[in-house]
Design a protein around this nucleic acid. Structure first.
Lengths: 108, 108
DNA sequence: GCCATTCATCAATGAATCTTGATTTGGCTA
DNA sequence: TAGCCAAATCAAGATTCATTGATGAATGGC
């Protein structure tokens, strides 16, 4: 059973929007192996520096990534908390679409 | 460890885009209790008929919902397969951002 | 100080998306 | 058949988003 406050809704929508782009999913894919610096991601992902920066910002503002600076390099990694909450959210969707149907009160 | 084919990427991006809207998340929320007809959803969700129809279509085209017609009513429900695949996808993201860092080969 | 490097930010363009209101399609009932 | 109802579709406008290229800020080496 799922109950979302308006705040939950906003946050979840933001998460999913952040994940709704192929380049950003590739970033997630790379970061699922652990922290990476921006320069490596630039090489891996065949994108421009400014565009990558934009996507990283999008993911960071959604709370999915955290960043860390070290000298002139920036390192990004997945936020364990966000991933866990995402897993909980999706996990709470019980797929009972095929089960015994809850008949509607009005449309019968 | 995550490996996404270009096809996977496209599909996942489409899922997440479908989930990136508050109204659509509310639809999901309602449908997680079981199948619902459009007219009930219209009442619950404080939206217009045509807009709801648009959102339902978006979710359906992403493969997240299935629909069924009965007389003049349309019933929508979550697709168990899609939910399961989503759960697998998110589940494969191991949040080891805090663990021992995988040091970069280039940026040190 | 001076320059190169790394990354972030800004402004501008085009594309995709959301939203609205009107129209259409199909099914039911009288 | 005529009329009503549920839902989908369409066209138009508004908004948001992705992308590009140029500029700016911070760091480190010389």
């Amino acid at each position: 059973m799922l109950f979302l406050t308006p705040k939950d809704l906003k946050r979840a929508a933001r998460w999913f929007h952040a994940l709704s782009d192929e380049t950003r999913l590739q970033i997630i894919e790379r970061l699922s192996d652990g922290e990476q610096c921006v320069c490596d991601l630039t090489d891996m992902l065949a994108t421009t520096q400014s565009l990558l920066s934009f996507h990283l910002k999008t993911l960071k503002e959604a709370g999915i990534l955290t960043d860390r600076r070290e000298g002139r390099w920036a390192y990004y990694s997945l936020s364990p908390e966000a991933i866990e909450e995402l897993q909980q959210f999706i996990g709470s969707l019980k797929p009972r679409g095929r089960g015994p149907r809850v008949s509607s009160k009005r449309c019968v």
